[in-house]
């Protein structure tokens, strides 16, 4: 029962949502709209489960006073502060909640990702090697885009931005299209397997 009920639910909702695409009936449309609404609500709970596991994980580390547990305390303090500010002081413009978001979360998160600029530079020096024909193709395309999509490329030679535009609009676009069609075919096959209950990995073990 623990596995059969979910498989039946998956099959019924899968077939229903597939069928409504081809059959138009007011009752079916109403059901379809309700299911879309339910998906949004259930999904947000799924995301909140993730937040709760985060809380449990950090509380566990603090209670056991594991190595460097002070950092876990910092994480929980950040979480608690946001929850308090959000629920008790509001989320409108100029609220303390958005002040923390603007002055702590946004700068820290974008700085974290900007670190990658340094690592990309280091990787370009160490790892971007013309070892064989394929890597030469990759390297040439990469360099043409790097130069061709900034004003400097135009200054060096007018053919550089032209080549970059051509690569993007013709061979690179077409290869991506091939990959997209492949993914599309794969997704349809997987979706069908899920609906008919062959693909069950989402059920987990037990």
């Amino acid at each position: 029962m623990r596995r059969q009920i979910p498989i039946v639910v998956c099959f019924v909702f899968g077939i229903f949502m597939l069928a409504q695409f081809f059959v138009s009936h007011p009752l079916l449309t109403r059901g379809y709209q309700n299911v879309l609404d339910w998906m949004q609500i259930i999904f947000v709970f799924a995301l909140l489960v993730g937040a709760l596991s985060f809380l449990i994980l950090h509380l566990d580390k603090i209670s056991k006073q594991q190595k460097e547990w002070g950092y876990n305390l910092v994480a929980l303090a950040g979480l608690a502060a946001m929850v308090f500010l959000g629920f008790f002081k509001g989320i409108q413009k100029d609220s303390p909640f958005l002040w923390v978001f603007d002055n702590l979360q946004v700068p820290m998160q974008s700085t974290m990702f900007s670190l990658l600029a340094f690592f990309v530079a280091s990787a370009a020096y160490r790892g971007f090697r013309a070892r064989n024909f394929q890597s030469v193709v990759l390297l040439v395309a990469g360099v043409l885009i790097i130069l061709g999509r900034v004003p400097l490329g135009e200054m060096l030679h007018s053919k550089i931005p032209e080549s970059a535009t051509w690569i993007l609009n013709v061979p690179s676009m077409a290869a991506r299209r091939g990959i997209l069609i492949g993914i599309g075919l794969g997704s349809i096959a997987t979706s069908l397997r899920i609906i008919v209950g062959i693909e069950r990995t989402y059920l987990g073990k037990g």
């Binding site: 370009a124 020096y125 160490r126 971007f128 790097i146 900034v150």
Partner: peptide, 24 residues
């Protein structure tokens, strides 16, 4: 930001070239 973008891109291309000369 475009000037800075250009210079950073130039640096990366130079690093790719230097790295490859060293490798070869």
């Amino acid at each position: 930001g475009m000037d800075a973008q250009s210079m950073a891109h130039l640096l990366i291309v130079l690093l790719v070239i230097l790295g490859n000369i060293g490798y070869w």
